[in-house]
Simulated scan of single mutants.
Amino acid sequence: MKTAPEGVKGYRRLIPSLTALVDFEAVARLSSFTLAAAELGVTQAAVSRQIRFLEDTLGVRLFYRLHRSIQLTSEGEQLYQVISDSMRRIAGTFDRLSMGSLEQEVVLASTAAFSHFRVLPQLSALQKAQPHLRLRLITQMFTADLRHNEVDLAVRYGNGKWGDGTATFLFGEEVFPVCSPAWLAAHQTPATLEELAQLPLIESDATSEGWMGWEGWFQAAGFRAPRLNYVLRCSLYTDAIQAVLLGQGVVLGWRRLVDALLDAGQLVRVTAATVKVQDAYFAVVPHGRSGSPATEHLIEWLRGAPIWTD
């Protein structure tokens, strides 16, 4: 029988309670003792005892107990990053072994516009290049804390500085007016930004930091319009694009989202005027989850680089 080398501690001595670690992960992820207890099927008092035992064992405080909420301390953040990543790896291995296959599921979060215009049209290419990868898409209208979601990777638009994950630059962006070919053929092409402001404009609500509307676009282009001719406002960019495809007016085209529609001739540019924005698209891996090979392949695919197979 093999024995541990002298002076080397076994895991049971270094990690006195796996139950406490499981409880800690749930509390940290949900930011709630009550929700963690409900998920684990135990009482809140039992969860509190496990967390207190863990804090006493480590000799550090893991949570700040506030009036109506809790918050991880810096030590708690360090422990959560390791525990979350480790548990996810264990769960993923269990899942693959129990399924009896080599399939790898990656949960990708993005806005509806990004998944609709950029991910879904190229999904067959991804499946061909990575036949074992199974993609699960989650739509987020607004930026959500990745620690509280079962997400492997999120696509975000912004400055790349977020506290809940590690961001990898994908690509920049520029914005310009677009419409349907039929609409442009039936109307006179605007010669100036002032004429453009009088056209029937379609607006979509901001769903992320840095999202630019018509008013901001005109200001960035050097023109302050006294009044804009809005004919339709949509909460989703996908609806705004659909309205334009049906010949309802003019919308701001985000190049990385409408490139395929422009190439197919379904959309055309109204003018040559364009605004290059400072923000960009980033792939964000949540803290506590190291990027798996499947995740890294997905990031390269999102960036547009060649995808390789194992």
Results as ranks from 00 to 15, higher is better:
Val268Ala: 13
Thr207Trp: 07
Val106Arg: 07
Gly249His: 06
Val82Gln: 14
Glu25His: 15
Gln44Cys: 02
Thr34His: 14
Arg61Asp: 01
Lys161Thr: 13
Gly247Cys: 08
Asp205Phe: 06
Arg13Glu: 14
Ile299Met: 11
Arg136Cys: 04
Ile299Cys: 05
Ala36Lys: 09
Thr309Arg: 14
Pro306Trp: 02
Ala280Asp: 04
Pro190Asp: 03
Gln130Glu: 08
Val42Glu: 01
Arg224Met: 09
Arg89Ser: 11
Glu75Leu: 10
Glu215Lys: 00
Ala220Thr: 11
Asp239Ile: 08
Arg118Leu: 01
Glu150Asp: 06
Gly59Thr: 10
Gln140Phe: 06
Met1Gln: 11
Ile70Phe: 04
Asp145Asn: 13
Ala191His: 11
Arg89Tyr: 02
Phe223Ala: 10
Ala45Asp: 00
Ala273Glu: 13
Cys234Leu: 02
Glu194Gly: 06
Val250Glu: 05
Gly291Trp: 07
Ala272Thr: 15
Thr19Gln: 15
Pro306Thr: 11
Ile138Trp: 02
Ala191Lys: 14
Phe24Val: 08
Leu153Gly: 06
Asn159Lys: 04
Leu126Met: 06
Ala283Lys: 02
Pro226Tyr: 03
Arg96Gln: 11
Arg88Lys: 13
Asn159Tyr: 02
Phe171Glu: 09
Ser98Lys: 06
Glu105Asp: 00
Gly216Val: 01
Glu174His: 15
Thr19Cys: 13
Asp164Leu: 08
Gly59Ser: 07
Ala36Tyr: 15
Ser204Ala: 14
Leu228Glu: 03
Ala91His: 10
Gln78Cys: 08
Val175Asp: 04
His187Trp: 04
Leu108Phe: 08
Glu25Cys: 13
Gln198Ala: 05
Leu252Pro: 10
Asp23Thr: 08
Glu6Ile: 13
Arg147Asn: 10
Leu236Asp: 06
Ala167Leu: 03
Leu72Arg: 01
Asp259Cys: 09
Gly41Arg: 11
Ile299Thr: 02
Ala221Pro: 12
Lys276Met: 10
Arg61His: 01
Asp56Phe: 01
Pro177Gln: 01
Leu21Met: 13
Ala144Gln: 04
Glu75Ala: 15
Ala38His: 12
Pro286Lys: 06
